[in-house]
């Protein structure tokens, strides 16, 4: 019994960064902005949060800084992708590489270490995961409601499916997408902060470990819909929890090598995506990655 509660607890905890990243991705992709930059946004917000918390010893200032960095990252990514009219995937990849290169450079000049922030004291970290998990669920619920019932949701979906329909009404689809990208960055940021200020004690190099991409997979598997995407995140978190549980375990006398155990979540992601059946209800926003000229 203890084992089961530990397993569930571990799933919930591991799902937090996935949920925030996937919901950020949902906001941006439903507006038509393909977002492979979730990983970079997790990293930049995790880093900004940890750096400010280390400097001020105040985790709440760290939280604010992380969210600010996420939103700024979202603005930068959105502006680059929208105003260059380039392929969003290319811009997203460039953004990830920029972040991966920038953070070690900054840590070196600020903290004299390449790629990480100093260990944070208990008092400079955020108290518990529960608040983050609840917030993620609330955001999922809000999205479910807002996509259906609000003007914001209506215009977001129109920008993602048929931006021309907005244009003829004198609404800038580009503006809708840019603000969606800023909001998406802020939402993803909570996932990054959870990694560095809650689950970890400071920023360490590449601490997102591909969670941005797993979140993207969950978003696709969930058909760009909030509830299904949330469930997909829990599924991938379960794979991760299983992996942690299996580490160091043995089958008969054979100890399973850790390197094999650790690939379980990634294999699960691949398998789930391969099995996903593309139905009309679960198809991508129609105008995703379509460049806009106005």
């Amino acid at each position: 019994m203890e084992f089961v509660t530990a397993f569930i607890e571990s799933i919930l905890r591991l799902s937090i960064p996935l949920l925030f990243a996937a919901y950020g991705g949902l906001i941006s992709e439903r507006s038509g902005l393909a977002n492979v930059a979730l990983e970079g946004k997790l990293l930049i917000s995790a880093f900004a949060g940890a750096a400010v918390a280390a400097a001020t010893q105040n985790p709440w200032l760290g939280l604010a800084a992380g969210v600010g960095a996420g939103a700024a990252g979202g603005w930068l990514f959105g502006a680059l992708a929208l105003y260059s009219r380039a392929d969003h995937i290319v811009i997203g990849t460039a953004f990830n590489m920029l972040v991966a290169g920038l953070i070690p450079t900054v840590t070196r000049s600020w903290f004299g270490v390449t790629g990480s922030t100093p260990q944070l004291e208990r008092s400079a970290r955020l108290p518990s995961d529960i608040g983050f998990f609840v917030l993620a669920i609330v955001i999922g619920g809000l999205l479910y409601w807002a996509l259906r019932e609000t003007r914001w949701g209506l215009r977001l979906k129109a920008a993602g499916d048929e931006p021309e329909a907005l244009r003829v009404q004198g609404v800038s689809a580009r503006g809708v997408r840019l603000w969606a990208s800023v909001l998406a960055g802020a939402v993803v940021a909570f996932g990054g902060i959870d990694l560095s200020l809650c689950q970890g004690s400071g920023y360490i190099r590449d601490m997102a470990g591909g969670r941005g991409f797993i979140a993207l997979a969950a978003l696709i598997f969930g058909g760009w819909r909030p509830v299904q995407t949330g469930l997909a995140c829990l599924l991938f978190a379960a794979a991760d929890a299983a992996q942690m549980l299996l580490q160091g375990k043995s089958v008969f006398d054979w100890v399973i090598p850790n390197s094999i155990v650790q690939i379980v979540p990634y294999i699960a992601t691949l398998m789930v995506l391969a099995l996903r059946r593309a139905g009309p209800a679960a198809s991508a926003p129609r105008a995703i990655n379509r460049p806009l000229y106005k």
Binding site: T150, W152, L154, A158, E162, A165
Partner: peptide, 25 residues
């Protein structure tokens, strides 16, 4: 210039939405 994934009334409202409280349609 219609959004195929939206309902008839949503398409008609788009850009000139009737709102109630909290930005609700």
């Amino acid at each position: 210039t219609l959004v195929p994934t939206l309902s008839v009334i949503d398409n008609i409202m788009l850009g000139a939405e009737s709102l109630s409280s909290f930005g609700r349609l």
